[in-house]
Simulated scan of single mutants.
Amino acid sequence: MQFNKQYDFQEISNIPIYFVKTHNLALPIWGEFSKNIRNEKLELITFDYHTDTHRPFNSYYCSQCSQKEKRNYSLESDYIKRILKNKKYKREDFCFEDVYELADKYLRNDEQILTAYDFKYIDKYTVICSDELEEQSDLDTSCRQDLAWDYDARYYTKEYIERMGNIQTFESIILDFDLDYFCTINCFNDKFEKLISNLLTKTKLITIAIEQNYFESCKKDKFLDLEVVKKRLVKMLKENILNLKQRS
């Protein structure tokens, strides 16, 4: 892909893995990938301490408009239409550099998922959240809100998804991780690895957000180290991808 120079990158058995310094910068990667599989439905499965599903460009919009206008947020607002003007961000007319600029300048690192959906890079998203303060009932409320906005969404807590063991997904998946999901070393367990192994059978692309400040603020284990978590995740992904290849 043309943007390899922008990101740390590695490939395991034809599955590309991109490491992003802030989560919003995953957006152009998802867009570049989606334009090449136009005839397939694409689902984002994201593991994150937070839900990261704020409305597209919402923070930028609120910084520009009046207090009264904040209640009338819309992608069709003049504030947002102005920054999208002359940008090739649509799946069928896509320019990586344009979307990178939009993500870098105007998008917060909790707005990339709904932006990807509204830009039609993904057709569905599943959020798996490790924040221990989040109850499944709270996430169900978030899901109902997104469905009311016509987003095809699912939300699960870490504990709930591990009990399920697997989920039904589209045939093509983007597997996405924010390293702050791993708030304790116990997040790496047999149930998690089994779930990931199942998801990897349909995974076409992996993105990993490496944000030191969020990792430090979310971790529960005092001595947990970002680089150690990154290496452990990549090692687990590599082992499972290669095992799947051997079995196929």
Rank of each mutant, 00 (worst) to 15 (best):
141 T>K: 15
27 L>H: 06
148 A>F: 09
223 F>E: 12
7 Y>M: 11
85 K>E: 14
55 R>W: 02
22 T>N: 15
50 H>I: 03
195 L>E: 10
45 I>N: 08
201 T>A: 12
168 Q>W: 01
146 D>A: 07
213 N>S: 15
9 F>L: 12
195 L>C: 11
63 S>A: 12
13 S>M: 12
66 S>F: 03
177 F>G: 08
248 S>T: 10
80 I>Q: 04
244 L>G: 13
121 Y>V: 01
212 Q>M: 11
184 T>L: 00
48 D>S: 14
34 S>L: 04
184 T>G: 00
221 D>K: 03
23 H>I: 00
24 N>F: 01
97 E>R: 04
78 D>W: 07
69 E>I: 00
169 T>W: 01
161 I>C: 08
69 E>C: 01
71 R>P: 00
179 L>E: 07
182 F>S: 05
6 Q>I: 01
209 A>R: 05
165 G>H: 08
113 I>F: 10
79 Y>C: 06
93 D>I: 02
108 R>Q: 12
33 F>G: 01
237 L>A: 06
188 F>P: 09
183 C>T: 09
161 I>Q: 08
166 N>E: 14
115 T>A: 14
96 F>N: 03
3 F>E: 05
87 K>T: 07
52 D>Y: 02
102 L>I: 09
221 D>R: 01
202 K>A: 07
22 T>Y: 14
25 L>F: 06
168 Q>I: 12
111 E>K: 06
180 D>C: 08
12 I>N: 02
18 Y>P: 06
86 N>M: 00
189 N>E: 09
41 K>F: 10
164 M>S: 11
151 Y>Q: 04
59 S>G: 00
209 A>N: 11
148 A>H: 11
57 F>R: 01
198 N>H: 14
210 I>Q: 09
214 Y>D: 13
56 P>R: 02
117 Y>N: 05
135 E>A: 02
234 V>Y: 14
